[in-house]
Design a protein around this nucleic acid. Structure first.
Lengths: 325, 325
DNA sequence: TTGAAAGCGCTACCAT
DNA sequence: ATGGTAGCGCTTTCAA
């Protein structure tokens, strides 16, 4: 790889001059600039970001910490972040935490070690010391916080909306599936649904689950019908378990949505590909990713008057696992 | 952030000594080491990777270029890569190319600018000049090549296997869905299926599609049944379009698998959550990711006698969209 | 308008 | 066993 020195030699100028044309700072004579440009092209030179980063004490890198990219909700987020970031020339350092403290701290540390200019994190542990000691901009994604800027969807309202929908559509023996206790958004929607359910006179049961994963979704679905065979309305903890429940119900011969209504959460892409298509509460994942990226960039650029926390709207997507009224 | 100088001062030694204990190279007296360790702990110091990278001309970063993390096949790959890489202390710089030349070149360039030690790429364009000029290890993932080390699944055989399965199970009017022409693996499985189909006397039709995406999958499914309403066996280009076709068929009242058999490709996690569950050709995505990472690490470490190209087996996963014979 | 040189934080060589 | 120091490739004063 050619260095700035090579370019300087080739162009017959000093490295300082090359640097000036590279960064478009300070005075550079028109023909000198031309010579330098030519040399750059000739050598196919591009500046070493690492050297830059060392001097400036900041890179063009941003750290993104996600629980698990393998969960279909997160690729959307990640893509939103990346698309927005790359428009401003930033690149992504990616880590999966698996909701595991050690991995999480480890990633945050290497983000710092690599001079990232900012971090976007979907952590359940803003309370970790490391976040408070962080000298760089942090934006929480898919999570709330009073202490840090955050982009999230209104989980409480989403939970309420899901419950209300099922109640309005005549479900009388509702089962509420509670997601993992340590996952904040899962709790929020659960609380919201609980709130709404409690305001009315429907009977309901709660099924506690401890994971969101594909592998286990089927198990939860089976457990649900063993424990609550007569339920006629399920509020799923997310779309994956919603779909698992849906298909388990079909296997048991239940008519959907006549005998059993199901509502999911997230609106992951494959929800419109289930059979029947899954009614769900939509979180605008891609847009959330973009918002988070934008917010972070604004903070980095020290723009004035930026919202520190943006709450995205959730939305009922009526498809075919709920009645048409 | 404290620097090595701060540690040196705190410990009352020279930076050289600190560096030695940091890297565990050269002689360091037992008590000197202890003093240094203490200073490191006290200051909560961790070395600046950027400075390291600049001096050594290589980082602990690896670039991963994927077509689109939003396609459910890729998160698995990415996760495999990450898990394996992080075991050796490497971190991931991630980029989505969207099969778009400009983005692809851009990412490769910034990978280089950031001193990555190696690149894993799922590109359809190994022929790009930039890959040949690359001074660093490159491993192709989900792609074949004679010129570069590669990890891929046997798409030809997968296509054959899919076709043979449908033929063996009595399908007589097969529809072969052809994926996007510019996507290599899509072509491979198509050719394989074509090969097998041609060896026998079944009738078949080909439906050409130009994308893999969720949004368009439904459209392809509708088009399929408009054009070939009497088909009794579909070889889908991947699981997403397989599932879309499956559910469209259900909507049309077709009995699966009695009237219509469907076989997908990839075995993405949600395929076992479709209704009925989708029979498919499995590519071991997660393992492929790990293999690629391992291969790259071996190349970086200049291990002797490593396989330059590893072909992973594909496998028929019989679920409920094909007959039990 | 241009160049010389210091310095970003680290490693590795050469002395001692 | 330890320290001094050059240098990785770049940006940015400061002087000319």
């Amino acid at each position: 790889m050619p260095t700035i020195k090579d370019v300087a030699r080739e162009a017959g100028v000093s490295v300082a001059t090359v640097s000036r044309v590279l960064n478009d700072t300070g005075y550079v004579g028109t023909d000198t600039r031309k010579k330098v440009m030519k040399a750059i092209a000739q050598l196919n030179y591009s500046p070493n970001e690492v050297a830059r980063s060392l001097y400036k004490r900041e890179s063009r890198l941003i750290g993104l910490l996600l629980p698990d990219i393998t969960n279909p909700f997160f690729p959307q987020l990640a893509r939103g972040v990346e698309d927005e970031l790359s428009r401003s020339g930033f690149r992504l350092l990616l880590g999966n935490s698996d909701e595991n403290t050690e991995k999480e701290l480890d990633y945050i540390q290497t983000f710092v070690q690599n001079n990232v200019v900012g971090i976007i994190s979907a952590t359940n542990h803003v309370d970790y010391q490391i976040y408070n000691e962080l000298k760089l901009p942090l934006v929480l994604l898919d999570r709330t916080s009073k202490e840090f800027p955050a982009v999230y969807a209104d989980g409480r309202e989403g939970g309420r909306l899901a419950a209300r929908t099922l109640i309005d559509k005549g479900a009388e023996r509702i089962t509420l599936v509670k997601g993992p206790a340590h996952v904040k958004p899962a709790q929020d929607r659960y609380i919201g649904a609980l709130e709404e359910l409690s305001r009315t006179d429907v009977d309901f049961s709660v099924l506690s689950t401890t994971s969101y994963s594909f592998e286990e979704a089927k198990g939860w679905a089976e457990e649900l019908f063993e424990k609550f065979p007569n339920t006629d309305g399920v509020i799923a903890s997310n779309d994956i378990v919603g779909i698992a429940i849906l298909h388990e119900a079909l296997k048991l011969g239940k008519r959907i949505p006549e005998e059993l209504q199901i509502i999911g959460y997230d609106d992951i892409p494959q929800s419109s590909l289930s059979y029947p298509t899954l009614s769900t509460i939509r979180q605008p994942a891609y847009e959330m990713g973009r918002e988070a990226a934008q917010l972070l960039i604004n903070i980095i650029r020290k723009e004035k008057g930026i919202e520190q926390t943006v709450q995205m709207p959730v939305e009922l997507i009526e498809r075919n696992t709920t009645r048409k009224d």
